[in-house]
Write a protein that binds this DNA or RNA. Structure first.
Lengths: 243, 243
DNA sequence: ACAAAAGTGTTCTCGGTACACCCATGC
DNA sequence: GCATGGGTGTACCGAGAACACTTTTGT
């Protein structure tokens, strides 16, 4: 881990170390109690909410910068990030909220301050384990928390659209994404996996064909049985095989 | 059309009017004689080849900037552009060729000249009609020509990768893209449409199932017959219905 | 009449859907 | 033993593949 990552979390950030006008936004998706969750930052004393984001160092790959943002907000490393769109509409440019945020943090930004530029933002989504992630706030924000994707607070700028597009992208790639691998515990029942699919796709899935499809995919391994304590046959447990 | 579009083609460009560090690259795909073509620029007296690209005005949407680039190089308006990826790897940063290009054009760029920065580039592809497009060179290049996608010259930077990714994206979206609508003439035979699909996907397609799939899609209208002059049944002509 | 290429029908196969029945488990 | 819910088998349906047959056209 870089030593200066800590200093960049302080209030005195050397913005010249970053590419101007280009940002990264990350839609980090979790899953808990049959609901999709998204990590959202709340800025100090403003009631403003936004996606976690960051900037690209002058000597850093775009993808690596995204990894860094993800690692900073979740403490997790090596999570697969999926770039899905770059947002560059003019109506993203609304610096007032950011000015207010900075003032609440005791800063008096110049009109041309780094954070008050127009930004084009490349967006990524990542599937992260709800249990393992430890949401960590920004230096401008006082919380980084999971929100149900259906009960998001009002978000700044176009971040609502970004989440919507991330969800569409996830749905399109669900079969490649090995969603169970990262969103569920290591071992899970077929019912749990199907419920996850149903939650993401927001539609019911046929039980037996889903079962067969998953078994035939060759990516699942049956590892044992789960005693549910319920009055019925105990389901098998599965886990993903890397192969 | 903006009047200053002409001046921006001259040698004295006001680079401060553009967002720094962000570029747009366009993979314009055409089709002729059973081959996919891509528009490629050749820079003056350097033997350097690259994709047509451009930059984003300070007061311009990203998508609109891409439209502008496309319009500049083909003369066509209203073509659908598909954003497919943003390239931000560090090994894109190789300013030497651009320095050489500028020198060949009689410019003596400062080390920190706009064009010599590191760029992150958002890439689009567009399907354009080979006949209707009129390739127009850049102010730094002396030609803008169609190249067979399988016989591309050696390209600068990562432009080869960009084309590859554009092709993958096109293949994935081929059924939505209404490729026949833009890549073929207005009316065409089923054979011609299938050959186009086969060219894009680089694999043979079953004749009868392709026929039925297209007819059943409801997006084709049979408009007449074509007399081929050959010794066989003359095929029907089809065209896309908008609906 | 024949060859060539397009249109069209039949059959097969593969997944997904629907539905049934079998199994295990706690009450 | 009965209700509950997961596992699994069978029948059906639709799309694509393979193949054959029909239609049209110029020679």
């Amino acid at each position: 881990m870089n030593k200066d990552q800590h200093t960049s979390e302080g209030k005195e950030v050397d913005w010249t170390g970053f590419l101007p006008g280009i940002a990264i936004d990350c839609v980090m998706v979790g899953y808990n109690e049959k609901q999709l969750k998204v990590l959202i930052l709340e800025y100090k004393e403003t009631g403003f909410f936004a996606l976690p984001g960051g900037f690209i160092r002058r000597n850093e790959n775009l993808d690596v910068a995204a990894q860094r943002v993800l690692q900073k907000r979740t403490g997790l490393e090596g999570i697969q990030l999926n770039q899905f769109h770059t947002f560059g509409s003019l109506n993203r440019y609304a610096p007032e909220p950011m000015r207010k945020i900075m003032k609440k943090n005791g800063l008096q930004p110049a009109e041309d301050h780094f954070l008050l530029q127009r930004f084009v933002s490349t967006a990524y989504y990542a599937l992260v384990n709800f249990e393992q992630a430890e949401p960590i706030a920004d230096f401008l924000s006082d919380s980084c928390r999971w929100y149900d994707i259906n009960q998001l607070p009002k978000l700044l700028w176009d971040h609502r659209d970004i989440i919507q597009k991330a969800l569409e992208s996830l749905r399109k790639n669900i079969d490649d994404a090995a969603v169970g691998l990262t969103l569920l515990d290591e071992e899970y029942t077929m019912r749990e996996l199907r419920t996850l699919y149903e939650t993401i796709l927001d539609k019911e899935i046929n039980r037996s064909s889903f079962h067969r499809k998953m078994v035939n995919s060759g990516r699942l391994e049956r590892v044992g049985k789960k005693s549910t304590g319920k009055a019925h046959r105990s389901p098998y447990l599965y886990k993903f095989v890397s192969n």
